[in-house]
Design a protein around this nucleic acid. Sequence first.
DNA 1: CTGAGTGATGGGACTTTGTCTCATCACTGT
DNA 2: ACAGTGATGAGACAAAGTCCCATCACTCAG
Lengths: 190, 190
Amino acid sequence: MARWEPDARERLVRAAVDLFSEQGYDNTTVVQIAERAGLTKSTFFRHFPDKREVLSAGQEIFSGLLADGIATAPDSATPLEAVAAALDSVATAMAPQRRDFAPKLTAVVAASPELRERNALKRARLAEVMADALQQRGVPDPTATLAAELGVLAFDRGFDRWIEPANQRPFAEVAREVLVELHAAATALG
Amino acid sequence: MARWEPDARERLVRAAVDLFSEQGYDNTTVVQIAERAGLTKSTFFRHFPDKREVLSAGQEIFSGLLADGIATAPDSATPLEAVAAALDSVATAMAPQRRDFAPKLTAVVAASPELRERNALKRARLAEVMADALQQRGVPDPTATLAAELGVLAFDRGFDRWIEPANQRPFAEVAREVLVELHAAATALG
DNA sequence: CTGAGTGATGGGACTTTGTCTCATCACTGT
DNA sequence: ACAGTGATGAGACAAAGTCCCATCACTCAG
């Protein structure tokens, strides 16, 4: 038996999502979250730097996966192919478990301006990470940023399609599909 | 003579920028900002919903200008031409006065995670506004979002070039130039 | 001239977020 | 045993942000 109940971090996340769903983000205090998780405010802030981060902390791994996917793509790959590889790479984190959790989570984020703001920051970070990874492959500046932006769009929209109840396909497939659509739209812009 | 010293809002912004430059965003309290502006904390929060907004409040007008520029573009304009028109439209707000103010402001924002986060949110809002305006012109979904994203990129990078000390050209010209570069990169992606 | 609005500001109490420091307490290895 | 170790608890504290009421100069009807 462990010294303390295990998975304190996960318990905090679940408590937060539940409480945010029930009474809204603004009407929920950190003390309430901690209490429902059987912990205290001190411990909450030991696991998360602030109240918003309790919902977006899990997304940190995406950065690494996306960067790796781009870095390990074959040298012959075009920028967009490297981005597609990044989407494949990040798909490994898209377990069915996460898919079940996603609808409630996105609903909570959509309802709170503060959480949406944090989300915008995370999105920008993902774009930066991908653009940097592309530039290290030798992709020149405007192209790298643009391809990264397409990648983030494919990631976001792919995620939305992936969590739709009717969807049965894996994330990688859906995201690649969106990326192809975006590419087609990009070449047909002018 | 007025009842109170005029331009309370602008005084607060200037005090905030100065203090943030001198001692950093985190080390500056709202009370300090208010005091330097000859006001109180109460009045500060009457003008700005929170501490971050004191620096990004001025950007609200951009949304309207961008949306108008797209809405009033000729029917024959392609999505990217409409975006270019939006950049022309927003250029009317880029007075030399704002250009002089910009370097210090961007430095302050760059130095503070909180301000960068707010900036990411504003950027996302601009993209949404442009995408919505394009869709109301009949531009279909992935294309509208993509063109809006190019528009925001052109806006951001155009702004960076515009405020460079060596630059003498007006904002509209610089932003259009960036947009052309992005368009070229977009069509050369695959 | 007067007195009832009006509207921006001041003041202060209050809740919540986030930081910091010290105490606790169960387990681990020597 | 017994001194670490590491996650947690407890509580003081500063600052952000909310709320409500007072003030005070000016305006305008009468």
